[in-house]
Design a protein around this nucleic acid. Structure first.
Length: 515
DNA sequence: GTAGGGTTAG
């Protein structure tokens, strides 16, 4: 297509005219035909600064900053002086490539020339500093700007939000003179990324009361919040809203829906949404594979993985995490070993510590402690706490005190601040009637000034989210909740010891009426 | 020309 346009333009003739020439480059770049654009650019005898800028910015906008950098280097070699537009493009490239040093260099270059810093240039620089984690340099620039646009504010809000400084993000958000949807989305997304989903949904509600119309991006983040909280009712409400207001079901939005239904436990809806999606990408497939893994449906996860690969999409490290965890939940040891090996050999994806922990968990649960231990020892550059943690868990399940002790001591060495390890190790000793050792561990924990941080869980009922910590008695129906838990535990114990019992005859209707 | 989003083990 790009080639055809190019041939056509060449036929009408534009040789020698730099304006026509630049228009052609600009046109090809904006259509995404970067190769063709580069050809025209490279063959030209009349290129000027505008041609260079079009190429550089074209690459940056397509996320191909390495190539932008190469063009920039070439430009320097030909002694063409960059201008503000060049610098904005290159600063954007530094944001993408996380090259803080080059970003600073460009900043200094521009300042030393005593050139005027326009708002877009300041914005680009702030964004670059934010994306490279230099919140202070971004803030210094922002504070010195005498005029700001919504974009300036958004960069600051989303920058702080991404680094978990939500109070600062919130403060700027409140301070802003005039807002549009983008800042709301940046803040909601920030809360979700910081695992503070309840606050994200509160903001979403606030938006509703202020009559601000959510868009696709708002929905993606809010659905992700529901997924984290297991808030199915709110998730369904959002799904209805999307349909009713005819929001565009983009790949991201569809994926967010798939993930929400999966995490909230509705596998039928997960699959329905997945199959109704007009376009799916590797993230969508990964979400579906993860859904099967969560539901203990190992074989379906694996068959979807094969379908995904068949359809020509490339799995990534996250996909493999889903595949391995599916094998783990389904007890598919042989398949787990196979896919773990395929991951690096066939797909050239080096396993990360999460993949190792998953494999250790898989082998450990199956009782293959020795194989698990050897895998841990074989982790390149030393296994981290998550891998040793999986081994420790397996040892506790299979009551291998000796190996469990080894794993726990390694864990204490790697992460001495994790109070959970001390508690679990002490419990393991108690179960093995090694009270003296248990006492030593508790003593060590006390000496290091550690306290067990209480676990927290949440549940959604009729659209309200309730959070609980250990031994929580604050809920007004606390007594009934505990009564229900006691009965459920009793049921589970019976089912564990008598796995073939007629469960339907066992069900006590009182338990379910209490829920 | 510069801003916001989806998948990550136990």
């Amino acid at each position: 297509m790009g080639q055809e346009i190019l041939v056509h333009v060449l036929r009408i003739g534009y040789d020698g005219d730099v304006f026509v020439h630049n228009a052609v480059i600009h046109f090809l770049v904006s259509c995404g035909f970067l190769e063709d654009a580069y050809k025209v650019f490279d063959d030209s005898s009349v290129r000027d600064l505008v041609s260079w800028n079009s190429m550089i910015n074209g690459y940056v906008r397509s996320g191909r900053s390495r190539e932008a950098l190469m063009v920039f280097e070439k430009m320097k070699m030909e002694s063409v002086e960059p201008d503000e537009v060049t610098i904005i493009g290159m600063v954007g490239a530094c944001a993408q490539l996380e090259d803080l040093e080059l970003g600073r260099k460009l900043h200094r270059y521009f300042r030393d020339k005593c050139l005027y810093f326009s708002i877009p240039l300041c914005n680009a620089l702030m964004d670059m500093y934010m994306k490279n984690g230099s919140l202070n340099e971004a803030k210094a620039l922002f504070d010195r700007m005498d005029e700001r646009t919504v974009v300036s504010w958004t960069i600051m809000i989303s920058g702080f939000a991404k680094f978990g400084c939500l109070d600062e993000a919130r403060r700027l958000f409140n301070e802003m003179p005039e807002k549009d949807i983008v800042q709301w989305n940046a803040l909601i997304g920030g809360y979700v990324q910081a695992k503070r989903s309840k606050e994200a949904l509160v903001l979403f509600q606030e938006m509703q009361t202020m009559n601000i119309k959510p868009d696709e991006v708002t929905m993606v983040s809010s659905l992700s919040a529901c997924a984290q909280l297991g808030a199915l009712d709110i998730g369904i409400w959002l799904h209805h809203y999307i349909k009713k207001h005819k929001l565009c079901l983009t790949v991201s939005l569809g994926t967010a829906l798939v993930d929400m239904y999966a995490k909230c436990g509705n596998i039928e809806k997960t699959l329905q949404v997945f199959h109704e999606m007009p376009i799916r990408n590797s993230l969508t497939w990964t979400a579906a594979i993860g859904a099967f893994a969560h539901h203990g449906n190992g074989h379906d996860a694996l068959s979807y993985f094969l379908k995904m690969v068949d359809s020509g999409l490339r799995p990534d490290d996250v996909t493999f995490l889903g595949v391995l965890s599916a094998c783990c939940h389904g007890g598919l040891v042989e398949e787990g070993r196979k896919f773990f090996a395929q991951m690096s050999k066939k797909f050239k994806i080096p396993p990360k510590s999460k993949h190792y922990s998953c494999m250790v968990d898989l082998l450990g649960r199956a009782g293959l402690l020795q194989e698990a231990y050897e895998l841990v020892r074989g982790v390149p550059n030393e296994a981290d706490a998550s891998v040793w943690g999986a081994l420790f868990f397996a040892c506790r399940v299979h009551r291998n005190i000796e190996m469990g002790e080894k794993a726990a001591l390694k864990l204490l060495e790697l992460d001495p601040g994790d109070s959970g390890t001390y508690v679990l190790l002490a419990n393991m000793y108690v179960e093995a009637t090694m009270q003296h050792k248990a006492r030593d561990v508790r003593k060590m924990m006390g000496e290091r000034g550690l306290q067990k941080t209480p676990g927290c869980s949440s549940v959604e009922v009729n659209g309200n989210i309730f959070e609980f910590i250990v031994r929580d008695k604050t809920h007004f129906q606390s007594d009934q909740i505990y009564e229900c838990l006691i009965q459920l535990t009793r049921h589970m114990e019976i089912v564990e010891y008598f796995p073939y019992i007629r469960y339907d005859l066992l069900c006590d209707s009182d338990v379910y009426s209490a829920m």
